[in-house]
Design a protein around this nucleic acid. Structure first.
Lengths: 373, 373
DNA sequence: TTGAAAGCGCTAACAA
DNA sequence: TTGTTAGCGCTTTCAA
């Protein structure tokens, strides 16, 4: 009988009872076992398994063969304890189900794999206490380095200082602490915000609203700065009523745009620092019968895959997420290679691209093609 | 100078050079250090840190205080090597960026955390060799158990047999090997397929096409069986030309529906085992001017978040992903608790729910509300 | 090229 | 309640 979650959604249909998963080997084969069987020593077996040091071809193949035959599996804990290195890099993101972050991870995986490191993925769910726990656990597990995109709540950095204390290098990607003395791989968020806003102005929209995220995160600050700069370059004064600075979700997007549309002088366009809140606005406007892009232009940020699927397809800023991940991993591996040598800090900035789709293209100009799934 | 990825998408804007991340402590504090400083032994310190065994309150607080002061961090490798247990559960999914899987993981996280286990997340990208490598690495890292949703290519199970060999229990969730002798947490895919198809028939659609996935995966087989059963119950013969069995992507969905619409007797509805291929069909039909749901009904499968965002919002089958994750984790922890006791196999089946949105609702009946982001 | 020996940091049985 | 002792499985220095 298994324990079950009681829930109206659930229905336990069948519960079989039969013996299963009985350990066939209660004790794992160790290099000591292999050594004994081959009348040699553990050091020789260890050398043979790694091809390290000096080892005769004959002994090597004998060991390899027996290891296979006995289904030997190395004990990483023992190896890492002894060698002092885990060959593991920790990766921390707010959430794994955002296309942006999962693409970063894909890039990281590719590079770290090539360099012989494995990764440990963890998500903070944007909760600071989770982030702290994850870092604590990663220190305990002796990760060689950490790649991190911080959570929305991360205003203090004591847990990151811990990493420095333990000599564990870390590289921020995308969401970073605002200090260039850290290793960071960012996109040029200012430029992203500028391009997006300028594009709306070029399309003839006049009164451009803006959603952004918590301004203690540099990325949102910079997207907002880009927005303001574009307005300024066009000689348009900004209107505080048209800015919503804690608006990253679909729900918030709906509410914010509803409020703004009821202003005496409502906006005719929106640049949002988040695809999700841009989507909320789009859904609200469609529901109200406001025509997008004819009467209202929208540009989001991140190129989440749904942006190409909604109707009309949404203009957005692509962050080259895979490249961000690759660069962060490269920077990290470089640091690991150069430990004890000259320490350098890398601040890599990647250029964003505006992907023009239909929500902003009121003249139906042909632009670059939307991305498909 | 840091290494960089050369790519036309990239632009390395700034590269600072300044010393950073110099290890402050080249040597970590161990329990031995703490013991020496307190004039006691490592065993006492160990006991104090865990609250295990017998320890005086005075000694305990003295140890805790010093540990904090010296910024002590336990070495998990040493602890696990000695104790023989990692208190870690491996989680393997095809891809982390599917809402379905990330929700499963959220459910798993919740339950395992409560039980004192941490998880290691890995994605196979639906590639068998990756899956094998991940399992190998997890065996080496001595995970206590594995929760796995197998990849599309996983037709043989030698790597899973390895787990049994090493006595590592594993639980399948959603995508499983078709043998009830394994621990599995599934949804009733047959019922999901049946409900979806019956709903389309109830809505008056007559000629229902079907997309599914590789039939060596039981889940797709069963969704297809549900589809066929619903047709049969309505006395409708199935038409092989209206079934596409390797159709899980948006691209494939577009191509398949295009082919079918050119048949002498084209379909007027679609039940797809994948939201993605359903989406491809929807995009194609909209583009062709076919009215959904008036002229063509569509039901997808999985309740991916984009299904509520597309226009019109898509009817789909929800799999209660969080519940699946929770149940899989519960089953797993139960097995771990009962090691050496009676071994039971759990086959838990969760009921799917049809979420009726607009792509199938040609009479504009009020149904349950679509999910929001 | 191989072996001997030490020990990574911790836990846990046993003794005091 | 605390200390003694052994050793988890591996790597690595040094010696042969």
């Amino acid at each position: 009988m298994v324990s079950m979650v009681h829930n109206h959604l659930l229905f336990i249909k069948t519960i079989d009872n039969m013996p299963k998963n009985i350990p066939i080997n209660s004790k794992r084969v160790t290099i000591k076992d292999l050594a004994k069987e081959l009348n040699t020593t553990t050091s020789t077996v260890s050398r043979a398994l790694h091809g390290h040091g000096t080892i005769s071809e004959g002994m090597k193949s004998k060991v390899m063969e027996l290891a296979k035959k006995r289904n030997f599996s190395i004990n990483r804990y023992a190896a890492n304890l002894r060698s002092g290195s885990s060959k593991t890099i920790g990766v921390i993101v707010p959430r794994i189900n955002r296309d942006f972050f999962s693409n970063c991870i894909a890039g990281i995986e590719e590079v770290t794999k090539g360099a012989g490191y494995s990764i440990h993925i963890a998500q903070s769910h944007d909760i600071l206490s989770n982030e702290k726990e994850i870092i604590k656990s990663m220190i305990e597990s002796n990760v060689c380095a950490i790649l991190i995109s911080i959570g929305l709540q991360t205003t203090e950095k004591s847990h990151l200082d811990q990493l420095s204390y333990y000599g564990i290098p870390f590289v921020f990607f995308d969401r970073a602490i605002s200090e260039s003395s850290y290793n960071r791989v960012l996109i040029d968020d200012f430029k992203g915000g500028y391009l997006a806003t300028k594009h709306l102005l070029d399309m003839g929209y006049k009164n451009i609203a803006h959603f952004s995220g918590d301004q203690n995160l540099e990325i949102y600050q910079n997207r907002t700065k880009g927005y303001l700069a574009a307005l300024e370059h066009h000689g348009i004064p900004f209107n505080d009523e048209l800015i919503s600075k804690q608006c990253l979700t679909s729900d918030c997007g709906e509410m914010s745009i509803e409020r703004m549309m009821n202003l005496p002088n409502p906006p005719d366009a929106l640049f949002s620092s988040s695809d999700y809140s841009a989507l909320g606005a789009l859904l609200f406007l469609k529901n109200e019968g406001v025509k997008v892009p004819e009467e209202f232009g929208i540009v989001g940020f991140s190129n989440e895959s749904f942006t190409s699927l909604v109707s009309p397809p949404m203009t957005t800023v692509d962050q080259h997420s895979i490249e961000i991940g690759k660069n962060a991993a490269f920077a990290c591996i470089n640091i690991l290679k150069n430990t004890n040598k000259v320490n350098t800090t890398s601040n890599i900035v990647i250029e964003p691209s505006l992907i023009i789709r239909e929500t902003s293209n009121r003249f139906k100009t042909k632009h670059n093609r939307p991305n498909d799934i």
